[in-house]
Amino acid sequence: MSPIPMVPPAMEPVYQHPLALADVHTTYCPGCTHGIAHRLIAEAIDELGLRERAILVAPVGCAVFSYEYFNMDGCEAPHGRAPAMATGIKRCQPDQIVMTYQGDGDLASIGIGEAIHAASRAEPITIIFVNNAIYGMTGGQMAPTTLAGQKTTSSPAGRAIPIPGQPLHISELLAGLPGSAYVVRRSLHDAANIRKAKKAIVTALKVQMAGLGFSLVELLSSCPTNWGMTPPQALDWIKTNMLPIYPVGDYKIVEAAKQL
């Protein structure tokens, strides 16, 4: 860990390295929003005092090494299987806090069965679902969340709806299941939305702590590298192109969760 600088007694630190965030270099591209998402999770974990009882299940994808990036116990699931693995961990240790961190290829494509059934069982786990509308790690292929007309390396002419179908709306889908207690979509494209995302992550973890059921926070994220944009252009693209298709909002908040 970085040594926390000595602060004179009269001053209060307003910004420091979260204890739950490991002090390591990551494999993420410059300008990508994974870093923001990681920081928000770490801050939420610290604020709720959960670091010593939290277990993170990493996906396959760009965040495959995320179990290394947090200063807490972690493991790495087969592609899409994080909710099943998290189920095994949570059922054996109901008092621990179990989270998965999954991208759109991992959760919305290959792992949608595991995600739906975890929500359906009201599995008290928390999923952070990073939706950047593309496969990042393998080099920019079309994901189930890729927008209509969006060019990717496997839809070079743009996603043509008659062939792969419409983009998949995960929050809307999982919110429809009786087992889900808290399902919201937030965006990481600007400071105001980032603050709201942080608040949602805190609430999702509180939902798990209170044993209310399944919780998921979808984070609209950027992939400057595979979108072929600068980081600012990519953030703007979220706002202009993703938000109309994937509106931020509260898709499911059970009554008990509203009191948290």
């Binding site: 277990i55 299940v57 493991c75 699931a77 087969p78 299987r81 099943a84 693995m85 998290a86 189920t87 095994g88 961990i89 949570k90 059922r91 054996c92 240790q93 595991e114």
Partner: peptide, 10 residues
């Protein structure tokens, strides 16, 4: 994969 998770939990 649930077995995998449970085994990770010891």
């Amino acid at each position: 994969n649930m077995v995998y998770g449970a085994a990770c939990a010891g």
